[in-house]
Design a protein around this nucleic acid. Structure first.
Length: 889
RNA sequence: GGGCAGUUAGCUCAGUUGGUAGAGCACCGCCUUCACACGGCGGGGGUCGUAGGUUCAAGUCCUGUACUGCCCACCA
């Protein structure tokens, strides 16, 4: 398509073109029967209500990097895309829309409401998918799934029924977390604890048959009507004599027992605790343990029930005020103090969560949790490893999982109660008659399942389970799960539990938990703070590749990413640099692929050097990605392209391109061509669009069948191009060139001004190297001429430097300030001196000589001689220069 | 209360088995050099939070400590 062209890369059309091509041609749809080691990842399904945020962008970029890289390695690769129905979140969105029409879901009724949500999903649910595509994600769109599509719903039912039959799902009364706004139960981890400024009231309870009182401390006086005991520590001498007696509930006058339990903290408050089993998780536990009465006094709307006596009908907030007032009046309020304490909030709507006793469905987790725990780290490895502990801790202290939600959008619980005989039926297919009494009066449960229930099946439900599909056989377990650490409990641990239970195999071999993306100040990005960086806007402004490269470059393991727009802009420069390096390459190739030659025996130290570096880069990128060191992979690419290929090689190859020697010219072209092409492959997983565009504009050897870049194999290693010795020679030449440039810059000689250069190399190797590469030095150092000389021929008034023993001399004419050169030399000498002192500290230490490895000692010795030699030469030149100065004075 | 991270150049961060501190951005100076000013060349800048310990040698290992952040948790 495009010839290579504009001097600035324009991402928009390029991205649109490749995206369409990849989708239309099903480039990323694998064949389960195809050869190659299987490699699979399931997408962490974004909420169907969602819009792509920067966290998704990071997550998806990292997955795509691995996926594209795995394809390059010849694996049979599947990336399953999809979305999550997100029960509460989606229901909230639709309810808000209804509210604008002055309607509630109850006005519509369940069926119409659910239909409305489906409609909403049809209309808006594709936005996030479109955004995933715009990120360049190489997912297989033919295998797109949704947690409520037909297949996944079948999987959900199968799992529910099986677990029920195994006794791992049960229905029971339990104290759960109740959000009175969402009007549903919440699982423990859907509750966010936040410190809230509150009060601690001290209340007097009179002890029956005694003349003493007991003072308890509470943060929630409105629950006093629900008290069914007072609890003290069994060894608390202040209270031991009261254990077994009864106290009188203030205001209500009910009689409650005084019990003892070591759960009580003697240090806190008064050491005596009021127990309200229906309105506090711990009190619930105490109530169970001591067989206390359970009296619910607050209903699911936050209104006081009749059990609260005089407070019936008040909201819990009103009740608190009233009861405090009443206590005060009666003289039973002993004191009030300030207290900051943690209060649970709904993670969806941030309403204060009320512990509430109700009938719910639970998954018994003890057995499942143990299996999930034991699988790590042998079968599944969690990275960074530090999260392993967190994972263990959660599973070790896990409580049964409350899976019922009192909302309408979700998988309805497949359980029916017979209206005639009370029999509970749980079945995959909707039953028509009661299995016990034959009645057809069956009533299905109103509740739906926790969204995470279906998400927990994702790795196998998306592959067609419970059918035995080719996909499952080929790609389960998945290779790796990439997700944020914030859902390690919600999702990762539960996938482990259910995956192991139903597939008898872990759902993934690795779990890579990436960081959170924060703003430049380290704050969490949120709409309310107004500090969000919108990936869609960033793609629009800087191009997708710039965004992807930035995210990859910052994805160091175990660390949060502080992102700011500047950085994305900065990496756009890198993309542009690549673009221009490619333009240069194309221009010089002249639209034709060069004739291949044997790169292992190519002559020219610059060629050998860049080929050597390319081999290193190939190894580094591959190794980095195998270890999930994304930032290292990006860094390697950045450095290779900019600091080596562009800054040096492209300059070095220019003289070759001007050459009349056809063989030399072709060899240079072929190296240029090869390095560019292989580098495009290395970079492609990180920046797929720009690399694909350049790749396909590159000339091709006639008759050669070159695949598009997305299908190109990772370049083979070329061991005969690994030449550290040759690379070192290049480094010497670079040193000489830099030395001349530095002299010019520091002495205020215009860089364009051509100067004479005298070199006094040490040894034949340096001498011949310089002679062989004279043109190269002339060009890059911008010289008038270059001479290899000996001491006596060196003009006294010269600037000088030493590189690996080779003396570098630039004769100065009267135009420069000679004193500056003296200062410059002194600076160099000071540096040398410092290094020498350091090395000698080692070499003068007998312990070092004796105990350090011989390699290290040898290296230091060599270094010391080198430094000493350089110092001597520099000193010598300084002396002569000083003399010259005197003479001119 | 427990656990886990982080603390390295002005800023954001690398630093894989311990062997003379690195990058990008920012900054300073020079340069309209025929791929690129989204550029080129050169330069300045760090006693690696702090106190100890192990070692011939510590940013790197161990212990204590300070600060910041995160997670978990039943202090009513």
């Amino acid at each position: 398509m495009s010839e290579i062209l504009a001097s600035a890369y324009e991402p928009k059309n390029v991205e649109a073109h490749w995206r369409k091509h990849w989708e239309d041609e099903h480039v990323f749809t694998p064949d389960p029967q195809a050869p190659g080691e299987p490699y699979s990842i399931v997408i962490p399904p974004p909420n169907v209500t969602g819009a792509l945020h920067i966290g998704h962008a990071l997550n998806l970029t990292l997955i795509d990097v691995l996926i594209r890289h795995a394809r390059q390695l010849g694996k049979n690769v599947l990336w399953v895309p999809g979305t999550d129905h997100a029960g509460i979140a989606t229901q909230n969105v639709v309810e808000r829309a209804l509210a604008r029409e002055n309607l509630t879901r109850h006005d519509l009724g369940r069926e119409a409401f659910v239909e409305r949500v489906w409609g909403w999903r049809e209309e808006y649910g594709h936005r996030i998918l479109d955004q995933i595509a715009s990120l360049g994600c190489s997912v297989d769109w033919t295998r797109l799934r949704f947690t409520m599509d037909e297949g996944l719903s079948r999987a959900v039912r199968r799992v529910f029924v099986k677990l029920y039959e195994e006794g791992l799902i049960y229905k029971g009364d339990y104290i759960i977390n109740w959000c009175s706004r969402c009007h549903t139960a919440l699982a423990d981890d859907e509750v966010e604890h936040e410190n809230v400024h509150g009060h601690l009231w001290q209340v007097r309870y009179h002890v029956l048959d005694s003349d003493t009182d007991i003072i308890i401390a509470t943060t929630r006086p409105e629950t006093i009507p629900g008290d069914t005991a007072i609890c003290v520590h069994p060894e608390d001498s202040r209270y031991t004599h009261l254990i077994g007696k009864y106290a009188v509930l203030p205001v209500l006058g009910r009689k409650i027992p005084i019990i003892a339990d070591s759960y009580v903290d003697r240090e806190f408050g008064t050491g005596a605790l009021k127990v309200t089993p229906c309105h506090d998780h711990n009190d619930w536990m105490l109530g169970k343990r001591h067989n206390l009465e359970f009296i619910q006094v607050i209903d699911e709307n936050g209104i006081m029930k009749s059990e609260s006596g005089p407070y019936v009908g008040l909201t819990k907030e009103e009740c608190r005020k009233q009861i405090v007032h009443d206590l005060e009046e009666r003289g039973d309020l002993v004191g009030v103090s300030d207290l900051d304490h943690a209060v649970g909030h709904c993670y969806r709507c941030h309403t204060v969560v009320e512990p509430h006793v109700s009938t719910q469905w639970f998954v018994a987790t003890t057995k499942l949790a143990k299996e999930a725990r034991d699988a790590v780290p042998n079968l599944t490895q969690i990275l960074p490893e530090t999260w392993q502990k967190t994972y263990y801790h959660w599973l070790d202290t896990i409580r049964d999982w409350c899976i019922s939600r009192q909302i309408w959008w979700g998988h309805r619980i497949p359980a029916w109660t017979c209206q005639e005989c009370g029999q509970i039926l749980v079945a995959e297919e909707d039953p028509t008659v009661c299995t016990k009494c034959g009645s057809s009066k069956l009533l299905q449960e109103e509740d739906v399942l926790d969204t995470w229930f279906s998400s927990s099946l994702w790795p196998f439900s998306t592959m067609g389970w419970p059918d035995e599909t080719l996909e499952l056989r080929r790609w389960y377990p998945t290779s790796v799960l990439i997700t944020g650490f914030d859902i390690i409990f919600f999702w990762v641990a539960r996938m482990m539990m259910l995956g192991l239970h139903f597939m008898h195999e872990v759902p993934f071999k690795h779990v890579y938990l990436h960081a959170l993306v924060r703003d430049a100040e380290g704050r969490k990005m949120s709409k309310s703070t107004g500090n969000v960086i919108d990936p869609v806007v960033m793609i629009e402004k800087y191009g997708c590749d710039a965004l992807r490269f930035t995210l990859t470059a910052f994805a160091a393991m175990g660390r949060d990413i502080r992102l700011s727009e500047d950085r994305i802009e900065g990496y756009r420069h890198f993309i542009n640099k690549l673009w221009n390096a490619a333009r240069f390459t194309m221009l010089n190739l002249g639209g034709e692929a060069p004739t291949p030659c044997d790169l292992g025996i190519i002559s020219g130290v610059h060629h050998e050097w860049i080929l050597h570096r390319l081999e290193e880069a190939k190894q580094n990128v591959r190794k980095a990605l195998a270890d999930y060191r994304f930032n290292d992979a990006a860094q390697t690419c950045y450095k290779f392209l900019w600091a080596e290929f562009c800054d040096w090689y492209l300059e070095l190859v220019k003289p070759d391109m001007q050459s009349q020697d056809a063989v030399r010219k072709n060899a240079a072209k072929y190296v240029l061509y090869t390095v560019m092409r292989e580098f495009l492959i290395l970079l492609h997983p990180i920046t797929p669009f720009v690399t694909a565009e350049i790749w396909q504009a590159m000339p091709v050897v006639a008759g050669e069948d070159v695949p598009e870049l997305a299908k190109a194999a990772y370049p083979n290693e070329r061991p005969d191009c690994l030449k550290p010795a040759q690379a070192a020679k290049m480094e010497f030449l670079q040193g000489v060139i830099v030395a001349v440039r530095t002299i010019k810059a520091e002495l205020g000689i215009s860089p364009g001004k051509k100067v004479h250069l005298l070199l006094q190399p040490v040894g034949d190797e340096q001498t011949s190297l310089i002679k062989a590469n004279e043109n190269l030095i002339l060009t890059l150092a911008r010289l008038e001429d270059l001479q290899v000389v000996f001491d006596h021929a060196v003009p006294k008034a010269s600037a000088s430097a030493v590189v690996q023993g080779c003396q570098i001399v630039v004769p100065l004419k009267g135009t420069v300030d000679l004193a500056q050169e003296l200062a410059r030399l002194d600076k160099q000498l000071a540096k040398l001196e410092k290094n020498l002192i350091n090395v000698n500290k080692h070499l003068n230490d007998p312990n070092f000589l004796q105990k350090a490895s011989s390699e290290v000692v040898e290296r230091d010795r060599k270094l010391a001689t080198e430094l000493l030699d350089n110092q001597a030469k520099l000193l010598n030149m300084r002396e002569r220069f000083a003399k010259a100065l005197e003479e001119t004075d």
